[in-house]
Design a binder for these strands. Structure first.
Lengths: 225, 225
DNA sequence: CGAAACTTTGACTACGATCAACTCCTGTGG
DNA sequence: CCACAGGAGTTGATCGTAGTCAAAGTTTCG
């Protein structure tokens, strides 16, 4: 099993602030795990009892709404930590996590990571920074949800996916989402999302290869209102 | 000027974790300020350079959307700290803060509070907890925005205001918001909010005395879909 | 008292949800 | 290898929700 102190992934999250000794200790109690695409990592209401450090892959965090629809709240990718919030509030998870592609994660039990949070100031301050940034992002999402049309939100999501997760060699978005996922991110009905995607296609802003979406005119997409 | 170490307000926020010495130091450099209803505490994009500890009153945090409408993202009340996020991300504020009634606040300059954040583990961990809870709340707001009707959201807001800020002796909500504020919280047009309020009135779920709103049937309001 | 700001109502429009039918993939078992 | 089942994607028709514009009524405050 890999050693935390040598793992490159830690550079990308707050764990870079842990000391070598702390990393060695964590390395000793962590468990690695492969998660297949579509697999549930944890459920809403589940006691997570630790955090996941994502070595590879992407997952979606969603919450079941009263009307029975899932709302995707956040995507967490390679390099980031998963489950920090619930760890800190000491409550069960308020979100469900599902893998969007095959993932490789390390699970660090609550006790170990909490010990570091409460002893290593640099580490806890780093986590604080991540959260403050997340909060900013949440503010933006709230405003967008409240004030923008579905069409505009969907265009924004495509731009976001493109700039954050990049594209395959053929130019399609490297992250593959179902139409339902798209709908659940922008908060609309699947049919509505589909309709807008085909409309954007007609306007030559995007093209599709099966489920894959390729952005043809990024500037045009940004101008969508 | 009041002394932080004797101030009761600190019990309600993370400052309770500061040592007596730290509080005395902060007391020496803080500035008290009275803010009138409607006054802007800080603007979106402004460098806040510290945090406000709210001794009395309530304010709204809002963000200007591209369509020119303000979206109210959060309400911050007596006992809470204002501006922590921007302090931590070391960026300009992403929100505007406006007083909803006459307020009394203490301003603590960045340097002082940062020093404590980076030295007092208990304090920074407390702030971490507050933020983790805020993030949970944001998740809920996002889901509600995305999945619920304006009518349902407005009913929820009324219930929220009632349970969090209480009522006057005549039973009206003790917090007084304009119709536009209501609209800006639920993310709708002012006229839409007005229409729904008058509809709820017809259904005898609420009544109004001028701008004041009184909840007549809390259980009924909760059943609104 | 009068101006300005806020609230209310009406009429109309547009956006997005829902339901239903149909097509297209994909994978599984005969 | 084909057939078929099931899921995902697509499209059309229809309906209700909410946004916009306009006008009139009401409060508030100087």
């Amino acid at each position: 099993m890999g050693k935390c102190e040598q793992c490159i992934i830690k550079q990308f999250n707050a764990m870079k602030s842990l000391t070598k000794d702390e990393l060695i200790r964590i390395s000793g109690c962590k468990t690695s795990r492969i998660i297949k695409k579509g697999e549930v990592i944890f459920e809403e209401g589940e006691n997570i009892n630790g955090v996941y450090c994502i070595k590879d892959g992407i997952c979606k965090l969603s919450k079941l709404s009263e009307n029975g629809k899932d709302q995707i709240v956040k995507m967490v990718v390679k390099g980031q930590l998963l489950g920090q919030r619930s760890l800190i509030t000491e409550e069960v998870s308020n979100l469900q996590a599902v893998a969007l592609n095959d993932m490789e994660v390390c699970f660090i039990p609550r006790g170990e990571i909490m010990a570091d949070l409460q002893n290593n100031l640099k580490f806890s301050f780093d986590v604080l920074k991540v959260m403050a940034r997340d909060l900013r992002e949440s503010d933006d999402i709230i405003v967008n949800m409240a004030q923008k049309t579905v069409r505009k939100r969907l265009a924004d999501v495509l731009i976001y996916l493109h700039s954050n997760f990049g594209e395959n060699t053929d130019g399609t978005l490297s992250i593959l989402l179902s139409r339902e996922d798209y709908a659940n991110i922008v908060g609309t009905a699947t049919e509505s999302a589909i309709r807008i995607i085909s409309q954007l296609k007609k306007e030559n802003l995007i093209s599709t290869k099966g489920k894959y979406i390729k952005i043809e005119d990024l500037a045009g997409l940004k101008r969508v209102e």
